[in-house]
Simulated scan of single mutants.
Amino acid sequence: MNSTKVFKAQIEEIDILNRISFASKQHWGYPEEWMELWKEDLLLTEHDFEVQQIYKLVLEKMIIGFCAIQELDEAYDVTNLWIAPSHIGHGFGKQLLSFCIEKVVRNDKPIIVEADPNAEAFYASQGFVTYGQKESLPKGRFLPVMKKTLSHN
């Protein structure tokens, strides 16, 4: 699949990564006022680089996406998975998620994600199962909470 490579993201790339997450979310046509409500949750912080493992997907020297996973006591949490809008739908999300799970997940704990409703089918295709929902903004909007279990042999 093309000439993509995955590398550990660097703090110096935070602005590029944040532009990708925001543009990727906007790709789904959400109203501007909703985007504003979510802005803080969409943006990576320096602290995120300290507590999460963040990997970038590079295509021909250009960062086109990133994935962040944080290990918690009970589970691994996919906190971010974003692909630049022009590259959505070409298998890059699957490639990046698979790489990160393989690289980061070392213990027999479930992998969880609070998915955007538009991404629920994608995560389901990657073996995640919806087991709950979490209220989001604006009021009355809910996110599917999904889980995947790996068995390490």
Rank of each mutant, 00 (worst) to 15 (best):
M62R: 08
K103V: 04
T45Y: 11
G132C: 06
A121N: 13
K8G: 03
K139W: 03
L43A: 15
E71N: 09
A23Y: 00
F49E: 14
I63C: 05
L44V: 06
L96D: 02
H27T: 14
S125Y: 09
M1I: 05
E50P: 03
K39Y: 08
H90G: 03
V129N: 08
Y123G: 06
W38N: 07
L43V: 11
V51Y: 15
E74K: 07
E32A: 14
E102H: 11
N153S: 14
A84M: 02
S21Y: 03
E46K: 13
F92T: 04
E36W: 08
K8Q: 06
F92N: 01
K147S: 13
D41S: 15
Q126R: 05
T149S: 12
N2L: 13
L137P: 11
S125N: 13
V113A: 13
I54G: 02
S24P: 10
A23C: 02
P31H: 08
F92Q: 00
I112A: 09
L43G: 10
E60M: 10
Q52M: 11
Q53F: 15
N153F: 11
A119H: 14
V51M: 14
Y131F: 15
V104I: 07
K61L: 09
G140A: 10
S21L: 00
E33K: 12
A115K: 06
F7I: 09
V78M: 01
I20K: 00
